[in-house]
Every structure is written in C-alpha cells, then in structure tokens.
C-alpha cells in the first residue's frame, strides 16, 4: 500500500468512524429515553391501577360495614 493510498484510506476511515460514533451515541440516548419512558409508564400504570383496585373494595366494604370501617380498610 502506497503512502497516498494510506492517507486516502485514513481520511475516509475518519469520516466513517465519526459517523459510527454518532450512531453509537444516538443508540445510547435512545436506550436512556426508553428507560425514562418505561419509568413514566410504570408510574402511569400504578396511578391507573390505584382507583381500579380501590373502587370495588370500597363498594363491597361500604355494603357490609359502617363508614369508619371502610376508612380503616382504605388506610
């Protein structure tokens, strides 16, 4: 390989490596965003599940027990 070939190859390799590094950085960011999205989803699901779980308990309890007992159960 001549010196000219080596330098031309190096120039193109630099461009390739920088673009590749960019792709790796973007992939890392994407992973972080996915994690953040998952965290938000977990919080949202927990929020959605809360009233759904609490609602039937309250109804059955209120049908059977006096008000104070329902509050105690909720706590």
């Amino acid at each position: 390989m001549t010196a000219a070939e080596q330098y031309v190859a190096a120039a193109y390799l630099v461009v390739f490596v920088v673009v590749l590094a960019w792709v790796v950085i973007v992939a890392t960011k994407l992973e972080r965003l996915e994690q953040a999205l998952q965290d938000v989803s977990v919080v949202r699901e927990a929020r959605t599940d809360e009233p759904a779980l609490a609602e039937p308990t309250r109804r059955t309890a209120s049908a059977r027990a006096p008000h104070g007992a329902v509050e105690a159960e909720m706590r």
Binding site: K29, L30, L33, D39, V40, V43, R47
Partner: peptide, 20 residues
Amino acid sequence: IELAGKRIDRRLRALKELHT
C-alpha cells in the same frame, strides 16, 4: 434524528413532572 431525540426527551420530562 438529534432533533427527534431532543423533542422526545423534552416531552418525557414534561410527563415525568406531571406524574410526580
């Protein structure tokens, strides 16, 4: 790509603030 990532990040931050 970079812009889409930044926009998603911003929306996620706003969502997180809403949920905390």
